[in-house]
Design a binder for these strands. Sequence first.
DNA 1: TGTACATCAGTGAACGCGCGTTCACTGATGTAC
DNA 2: TGTACATCAGTGAACGCGCGTTCACTGATGTAC
Lengths: 211, 211
Amino acid sequence: MIETGTEPESRAERKLRTRRAILDATLELCSDSSLNALSLRQVAKQVGIVPTAFYRHFDSIESLGLALVEESFDSLRDLFRDVRRNARADEDIVDGSIDALVDHVHRRRDHFGFIARERVAGPRSVRGAIHREIELCERELATDLALMTGTDAWTGKDLHVLSALFVSVLVSTAEQILSTTRVEQEEQIIATVRTQLRMLLIGVYQWRSER
Amino acid sequence: MIETGTEPESRAERKLRTRRAILDATLELCSDSSLNALSLRQVAKQVGIVPTAFYRHFDSIESLGLALVEESFDSLRDLFRDVRRNARADEDIVDGSIDALVDHVHRRRDHFGFIARERVAGPRSVRGAIHREIELCERELATDLALMTGTDAWTGKDLHVLSALFVSVLVSTAEQILSTTRVEQEEQIIATVRTQLRMLLIGVYQWRSER
DNA sequence: TGTACATCAGTGAACGCGCGTTCACTGATGTAC
DNA sequence: TGTACATCAGTGAACGCGCGTTCACTGATGTAC
């Protein structure tokens, strides 16, 4: 059979495309509220399918939310991977990390906003899934930090504490970036977090864990 | 007229009591979701009034939300006042601040949870009101920090940056405390933030602003 | 290659229900004289 | 103090609408032979 650019989709391909459309419609529709305030019918309408067709793809808005947690954390892990790469290559770990953060938040506003909102206001199961994912990120970052600091001055516990602090600051910064649209305000947010991380780094360089 | 314990309420008193009941019912009903997912009828049912009676007290769920922002930030300012008092009196500023935080979050779980959720997932006007209030808190804290550090080593800008960092860490800690019910987990959260603040303080003591 | 049957994404009608808001009302409380 | 009237928090019926979910269905795609 001759392959052409306008090959008709298989049934599986079409289904996947509708599923994708549902995920995208949901991210758009709950972009300034929580999944709890979103109805299945709103999603179906936005996608252009009849409400009952929704059930061919997800059991409920809640299980759709769990799928979105997974793909949102793929974006967040992309960010962490870039931070790690910048930390190895670049001259300045602070600037490199902030650049990666800003870049990824801009590129996937939808995913980062979704995590920020559902983390505190989503359905219970979605909140739980997000908390587990964040803890995973903290542990992963702690492992990376161990390689950077050496194990002489830092206990594993303190590494996790520091990792959690970094994550807090990054989450908070991401939330601030998401809540502004003015460029000059964003630049100020970035300048602020840059200084904050530098203050923090001074403490980090001097720190010796109690044993 | 002789005052007795069972004096009949005036019309104004009764109205105030219903208003209070509406505010309390709302805090309870949206304790694990956003105002956007809450209906006027649910609130009325919980209070024990007919749905239309709601309008005698508030225009909409949204304006009710703005009233709750005000009273929630009264609780948050109480916390800040206690932190300030502990900072003056106590031996250790870190322990004192954390004690005050934990105490206030426990006492007004409803208010702190409300701020945490509506800050990111509430109606636009409510989010705006919360952001303004948080900025006010940061500025107030920056003024206090100026008195503690002296103005020789710190610019006003850096004081605000540091203040914002403290607020970020406190907000993040409050959110973690709110999302757990297990005592041992809470103790770990507290131990973590204690170490985080100590790391940060090392940086703070060494910091000299660029001029 | 052609045919007969199976699969299944999406349809459309129907259900009972809770929604926000309107309206005219009731009756206890408050006020003016 | 007593009376006549005003105020207003709360009532209850009614409205049109969107909700989640059920069910039997359609018709294009996929598969077995």
